[in-house]
Amino acid sequence: MQFIYKLILNRNSILVFAVILGLVAGDFASIFQPFSFFVLAVTMSFSMTGIRMQSLLNPKAMLGPMLLGAFLNYAVFGLVVISLAYFVMPTENLFYGFVVIAAAPPGVAIIPFSYILKGDVEYSIAGVLGAFLASVVVAPLFISLFANHTDVSSYSLFILMVKLVLIPLVISRFMLYKPLFRYIEPVRGKVVDWGFAVLIFIAVGMNRQVFFSAPTILLLVGGVLLTVTFGLGTIYSLIAKRMGIQRPRATTQTMLATIKSTGFSVFTALTLFGKEAAIPSAVMAVVVLLYLIFLSIKSSKLKMTVS
């Protein structure tokens, strides 16, 4: 019983379970789709409580990390993934799915994993916040530039970003109020994990026929995401080492350049372009999970070597 309890509270197990459930019981995914906005809004609000404004009391010190966080997340990861997808994806909607991934803000998991992997936590907070704030402008710009012949207006995209980023960020400030936060903090991680799991279940479930009948598409999508995530992460780590960037900061910067918000991209792709466009985001959930496990193992081996 204790084993089952630990299993359902483990982030990795929850996300794997969401993928499996989507494949097995995907017919029910459409029932939950109307609630996806509410699920994402709650999840984003809880996850953003990890961004503490106290870390930003020194604007001069934080401006650099905020700008670099936005640059790595959009100019580096975003443009690389769009370029690869443009040449590889067989349909427009699949390509649009990658445009949404490129436009998505970074995964808030970067902050706790900076702590777990002995990265620079303060730097991660500033970098994630900078990229989140930039997403309000960058996301509509990316989608307008690379999906410009769709019926999605720049204004509607801007309003969507305000709803999905700015409003949850404001709500999260109220949630940090001490008398309230003492009740939120113990359940925050699980609300975020299960919220993203619901969104992944919806994306996988609504595309379950692709997972069973179109292995070529899965290989193409997975190949692009694995190349960008693991390849870009490895290349950036080597560059950071060559430039003499200290390992804690390099670890955080690498995550800023490789990890996107899966839940955000799932919802946005479904809302703007339909279920086929959500396939890359559903696959990305698995790739990001594998990458975080890879970084954890790599960090453990490094500790053993140092000790």
Rank of each mutant, 00 (worst) to 15 (best):
Q209W: 11
W194V: 04
R11F: 02
A257F: 08
L67W: 09
L21M: 11
Y5G: 02
G26S: 05
A214S: 02
L79T: 13
V204Q: 03
V192N: 01
S154L: 10
H149T: 13
L238D: 06
I217F: 05
I239A: 13
G222L: 13
P90H: 14
Y86S: 07
S47L: 04
M89W: 05
A277K: 08
P59Q: 02
I4T: 12
R249L: 12
F113Q: 10
N12R: 01
A75L: 15
M243Q: 06
A269Y: 09
L57V: 05
G69T: 00
V210H: 09
M243P: 00
G223M: 09
G107F: 06
S281P: 05
V24E: 09
V191H: 10
Q54I: 13
F87A: 15
S300N: 15
P248G: 12
L15K: 01
R52D: 02
L295D: 03
A131M: 11
I167T: 06
S124T: 10
V137T: 05
F38I: 12
T49I: 12
I143P: 05
T43N: 15
L72S: 11
A277D: 01
G107Q: 10
S135Y: 11
R182K: 11
L272E: 07
L176F: 07
V81S: 02
A103S: 10
I217S: 03
A61E: 15
D151F: 11
A285M: 08
I184M: 07
L302E: 05
T216K: 15
L79S: 14
A197G: 13
L157M: 02
L220N: 13
V121E: 14
K298D: 03
M89P: 08
I239F: 10
L220D: 04
V210E: 10
K118T: 08
V128G: 11
T227K: 11
Y291I: 00
L15N: 11
I20K: 08
V121C: 07
F174P: 03
I143H: 08
S261H: 12
G26E: 05
T271I: 07
M62Q: 15
R247F: 06
S156F: 12
G233I: 09
V283N: 10
I14F: 00
P179H: 03
S296Y: 04
P168D: 15
L225C: 00
V192R: 05
P280A: 14
A109Q: 01
A102I: 00
V76P: 01
K118P: 01
L117R: 04
F132N: 13
I4Q: 11
L141N: 08
Y5D: 06
P248W: 07
A214R: 00
P34G: 01
I202W: 09
M89I: 01
V99A: 15
V128A: 02
V210N: 07
F230H: 05
L272T: 10
Y236I: 05
S265P: 00
T43V: 12
L160Q: 15
L290M: 12
F71E: 10
L57W: 04
V288E: 04
L129N: 00
F28K: 03
T251L: 07
T234W: 13
A257E: 03
F264N: 03
V287F: 04
I8L: 13
T251R: 09
K6A: 07
M1E: 08
L145H: 06
W194F: 03
V80C: 14
N58E: 14
E185W: 08
A277W: 09
T262N: 11
S55Y: 15
F37N: 10
N10T: 01
V221A: 00
I20C: 14
A282F: 11
I167M: 07
M48W: 02
G50V: 09
